[in-house]
């Protein structure tokens, strides 16, 4: 999204990194934090986030908006999100293009949606409702999936693009998720990239995954693997300079290792963009 700042190459801030925030050695371009982890009344996490903000810009990334759900959007959740936005002034706010709750119960997972016109309209209307409430455009992230529905009538990238256009929201493109879903469902990740409207991509995620039988699982417990780096090169070719973030949620390595991956993303972006300018 041209209206979003280019923050560079950041890392997902997790509890294990808090000591680095406290001693001010967490020197990333920017941090992304899980919004729900800070929807609390007080205590250490909020103090850490205050300190992280002094070091680098912060972005709020939610996991429980349930934008694709059929339950009404949770008013208490939106209020808490608003409070966080007011207190921490994130560069932007994002969540996932999925559903995660039904009948008032939460799965705490990113569950896949059927790709139909009906669902495009349903989700886009809810995104507009959230954007109106927050007074800002939000970014929606494509999720990894392990199943698709026989009732879907369009590929995932058409679904994602249609929602972004109809809701006038941004896209957080998770390159690892594209790769994982491409392997699991047998589509071309390059076709996915070429089907996404470049002007709406405001952020890129990079992460690792693991195998389970024939399926790849988005476990965020490994370094970014070679095929995902290769796909990232293609993403930079297609979308240009986009704020990029390396995520790790399990087997989290020392902060320096995560930072090294963010720096590798920076190098790849530089290589691709330099090559593009030379070829012009």
């Amino acid at each position: 999204m041209s209206l979003l700042p280019h923050l560079g190459h950041g890392v997902g801030l997790r509890t294990i990194h808090y000591p680095h925030v406290l001693d001010r050695t967490a020197r990333a371009d920017w941090f992304e934090v899980i919004s729900e982890n800070f929807m609390i009344a007080g205590g250490r996490p909020l103090q850490i986030l205050e300190k992280a903000r002094e070091l680098a810009p912060v972005v709020l990334h939610g996991v429980s908006l349930n934008i694709g759900g059929t339950d009404p959007l949770r008013e208490d959740y939106l209020t808490e999100l608003e409070l966080l936005i007011r207190r921490f002034a994130p560069a932007w706010v994002s969540d996932h293009l999925c559903w995660g709750a039904v009948g008032g119960s939460f799965a705490h997972d990113l569950l896949p949606l059927p790709y139909t016109e009906e669902v495009v309209r349903h989700v886009a209307a809810r995104i507009r409702q959230v954007q109106d409430r927050l007074g800002r455009r939000i970014l929606m992230e494509n999720v990894s999936s392990y199943l698709t529905y026989s009732i879907s009538s369009m590929p995932e990238w058409v679904f994602l693009s249609a929602i972004a256009e109809e809701a006038d929201c941004g896209i957080l493109l998770d390159v690892n998720n594209i790769y994982v879903s491409a392997i699991n469902h047998g589509f071309s990740p390059l076709e996915y990239l070429s089907g996404v409207p470049a002007q709406r991509v405001g952020q890129i995620h990079l992460a690792g995954h693991s195998s389970q039988g024939d399926l790849l699982i988005d476990t965020h417990d490994h370094p970014v693997p070679t095929p995902v780096w290769q796909l990232y090169r293609e993403a930079v070719r297609r979308f240009g300079r986009v704020s990029t973030l390396v995520e790790r949620d399990d087997q989290i390595p020392p902060f320096e290792e995560l930072l090294a991956e963010a720096n590798r993303a920076r190098e790849i972006e530089g290589e691709v963009l330099n090559a593009s300018s030379i070829s012009l």
Partner: peptide, 21 residues
């Protein structure tokens, strides 16, 4: 409702979510 080679494949895919839950 789930796409797959056969019911076994479909159930394996659903089980990823139930196990994860």
């Amino acid at each position: 409702l789930v796409c797959g080679r056969d019911d076994s494949d479909r159930k394996i895919r659903i089980a990823v979510y139930s196990d994860a839950y």
